[in-house]
């Protein structure tokens, strides 16, 4: 089968094209953050002698777990920033995914428009709540 590609210039610039590119870039960012997180957690677990899973738990649930990493100010700020960045890219990626599934089952213009309002509003609200809790924990 011959490969079929459409040059970027001919794709135009609509909401769908923007979201397609956004979805691809956010997923690449996610893989990068996962890799950086795993390497960081391995280094931290080697230095502290803590369990690898515990390090991840302290990072992703900073308000639920007493983290011994708090003694190292730089490390805890970096962990918070990385988890916040991860939550944001997950949210951005998820918005498009949910809308794509929704668009397959609801074909009316108003239904699709309302789905966009609801899903994007939910994503913004959930991101803000997560950012606030992770930062103040």
């Amino acid at each position: 089968m011959a490969a079929r590609t459409l040059p970027i210039k001919k794709r135009g610039f609509s909401f769908e094209v923007f979201m397609w590119a956004f979805t691809r870039f956010t997923v690449i960012a996610m893989y990068g953050l996962i890799l950086a997180g795993i390497i960081g957690a391995l280094i931290a677990s080697a230095r502290t002698g803590a369990n690898f899973a515990d390090i991840l738990y302290w990072s992703f649930f900073p308000n639920l777990a007493e983290s011994p990493l708090g003694k190292n100010f730089g490390m805890i700020i970096l962990a918070k920033l990385m988890v916040i960045a991860f939550v944001l890219v997950v949210c951005g990626h998820g918005v498009h995914g949910v809308l794509e599934i929704w668009d397959d089952y609801v074909t009316s213009e108003s239904g699709r428009r309302w789905a966009r309002y609801i899903v994007i509003s939910y994503a913004v609200a959930a991101s803000l709540a997560a950012m606030y809790i992770i930062w103040i924990a």
Binding site: F60, F61, N63, L64, V90, C91, G94, G97, V98, I101, A126, A129, A130, I133, I134
Partner: peptide
């Protein structure tokens, strides 16, 4: 892929609610 995405969407919601402090979600 779609089922997985939907499962992760549910997980994301549960994660946010558990961060907020909802006991049942934790």
């Amino acid at each position: 892929h779609r089922i997985g995405g939907s499962a992760l969407f549910i997980f994301f919601t549960v994660y946010i609610l558990s961060l907020v402090g909802v006991d049942s979600m934790q």
